Simulated scan of single mutants.
Amino acid sequence: MGTGQLVLDGLVLLFGLVGVVLPGVPGPLLVWAGVLWWSMAEKTTAAWGLLACATALLLLNQALRWLLPARSMQGSGITRGTLLLAATAAGAGFVLLPVIGAVPGFLAGLYTAERIRLGAHGPAWVSTRNALRAIGYAVLIELVICLLITAAWVAAVVFG
């Protein structure tokens, strides 16, 4: 495999890692695609094994991504309507301020929905903070899994 291909694979993986924390960029999918692209070019047992492990880890990530925040949010009383309003506000923020506007839009939508639901600033802020903590844990888990996959890829390239 050529150096150019390895550099491009590395860039895809790096963009995937950045995509984990950027709204609208499918980070884990890009990390997996980078490993897939590399393993299809490499065609070794180690490459296919790394792809299988990456696939299993990302499937585990998807399960955890849906289970952990959902439990934390249900415990804090966050409703689906609140999340729908927050997602709508994130979409509006994305349109008004491309890419970076999604985060403040989501925060504003989440707080507004909780303020309407709970009626006062204090409880709405606590509920918003708890929801953000649950979402933050999901992003952190996703980032750690993608970093593990990328580190395994680097090890396979260097030592393989």
Results as ranks from 00 to 15, higher is better:
92 A>C: 12
25 V>E: 04
123 P>H: 12
74 Q>V: 10
86 A>C: 06
4 G>K: 01
72 S>F: 02
128 T>Y: 07
7 V>R: 00
58 L>P: 02
48 W>Y: 13
150 T>K: 12
69 P>T: 07
64 L>A: 07
7 V>A: 03
112 T>I: 11
1 M>K: 13
63 A>I: 13
109 G>A: 05
71 R>A: 13
28 P>G: 06
98 P>Y: 14
6 L>P: 02
64 L>T: 03
33 A>S: 09
9 D>R: 10
78 I>W: 06
156 A>L: 11
36 L>C: 08
88 T>S: 15
141 I>W: 00
150 T>L: 11
16 G>K: 00
148 L>T: 09
75 G>F: 00
145 I>M: 09
157 V>D: 02
21 V>R: 05
107 L>R: 10
32 W>S: 04
88 T>L: 15
127 S>G: 06
123 P>E: 08
58 L>C: 05
109 G>N: 06
149 I>M: 06
102 A>G: 02
103 V>W: 10
37 W>C: 07
43 K>N: 15
108 A>V: 11
61 N>L: 14
74 Q>H: 15
39 S>M: 00
4 G>P: 05
138 A>M: 02
18 V>M: 04
78 I>V: 14
148 L>I: 04
92 A>G: 11
54 A>E: 02
137 Y>I: 13
70 A>F: 06
3 T>N: 12
90 A>Y: 06
100 I>G: 01
35 V>P: 04
133 R>W: 12
150 T>R: 13
36 L>M: 07
11 L>A: 11
34 G>E: 03
152 A>I: 05
129 R>G: 03
116 I>R: 07
45 T>R: 14
69 P>C: 03
50 L>V: 06
82 T>Y: 03
52 A>R: 05
6 L>A: 09
56 A>S: 11
76 S>G: 05
136 G>D: 05
27 G>C: 00
29 L>I: 13
27 G>Y: 00
18 V>L: 11
117 R>V: 03
48 W>G: 09
128 T>F: 07
69 P>W: 10
81 G>S: 04
41 A>S: 10
9 D>Y: 14
152 A>T: 03
96 L>D: 08
105 G>T: 02
65 R>P: 12
62 Q>G: 13
123 P>T: 12
86 A>Q: 04
28 P>F: 01
6 L>D: 01
13 L>K: 06
117 R>S: 08
44 T>C: 08
62 Q>S: 10
125 W>K: 14
74 Q>F: 11
35 V>I: 09
140 L>I: 09
52 A>P: 08
125 W>C: 06
11 L>K: 03
103 V>F: 12
52 A>D: 11
70 A>K: 14
75 G>H: 13
38 W>R: 10
30 L>Y: 01
125 W>V: 10
119 G>E: 06
58 L>Q: 09
86 A>W: 08
116 I>Y: 14
44 T>I: 13
67 L>A: 14
5 Q>L: 15
159 F>W: 14
22 L>Q: 00
127 S>Y: 07
5 Q>H: 15
147 L>Y: 08
51 L>Y: 04
84 L>V: 14
69 P>Y: 09
111 Y>E: 05
2 G>K: 10
46 A>W: 09
103 V>S: 07
104 P>G: 09
112 T>R: 09
55 T>K: 04
108 A>N: 05
16 G>S: 02
139 V>E: 04
137 Y>G: 13
101 G>N: 03
133 R>H: 11
46 A>E: 14
